[in-house]
């Protein structure tokens, strides 16, 4: 019960990914693990599968990991990263269909209360349903 769902933020821009992670830490607190990745190694825009896998590992929790993404490739690369995990870990990672900043804050708030991965995803996606 002490462990909380981890949050991974994947943006094309490193600044957006880092800024979103900072916002989550400042608004929600440090009890939820938050990892981020974004940009390509040359400082340009982009996302990459190995970077996302590293972020998933950094945010790993026995309760699973919720990923928040921005556009197109961030989502497809995140799905690819999940596919490349070991089968038993694969089902403990979800890519949320939610706006990246708002979704990350809402998901982390829900996670901080000890909620399950499905509850965390549902709260993040509440914003999309409305």
């Amino acid at each position: 019960m002490s462990d909380t769902v981890g949050i991974v933020i994947v943006s094309h821009s490193r600044d957006i990914a880092k800024g979103t992670a900072d916002m989550v830490r400042q608004m929600v607190g440090s009890e939820v693990k938050v990892a981020f990745c974004g940009g390509d190694p040359d400082g340009g825009l982009g996302t990459n599968v190995p970077g996302i896998i590293d972020a998933i590992n950094d945010a790993w929790s026995t309760k699973g990991v919720a990923i928040l993404v921005d556009l197109g490739g961030a989502e497809t690369n995140s799905e690819m990263a999940v596919e490349m995990l070991e089968p038993e870990r694969r089902k403990m990672v979800v890519v949320c269909n939610a706006p990246i900043v708002e979704g990350a804050v809402m998901a982390a708030t829900e996670a901080a209360g000890g909620s399950s991965l499905e509850q965390v995803r549902a709260v993040a996606e509440e914003l999309t349903a409305g």
């Binding site: 608004m27 929600v28 607190g29 804050v105 708030t109 901080a112 209360g113 000890g114």
Partner: peptide
């Protein structure tokens, strides 16, 4: 606004 809402929700969940 956002920060108070997060704090209120987190406390309520306890």
């Amino acid at each position: 606004h956002a920060r108070p809402a997060v704090k209120l929700t987190k406390l309520a969940k306890r």
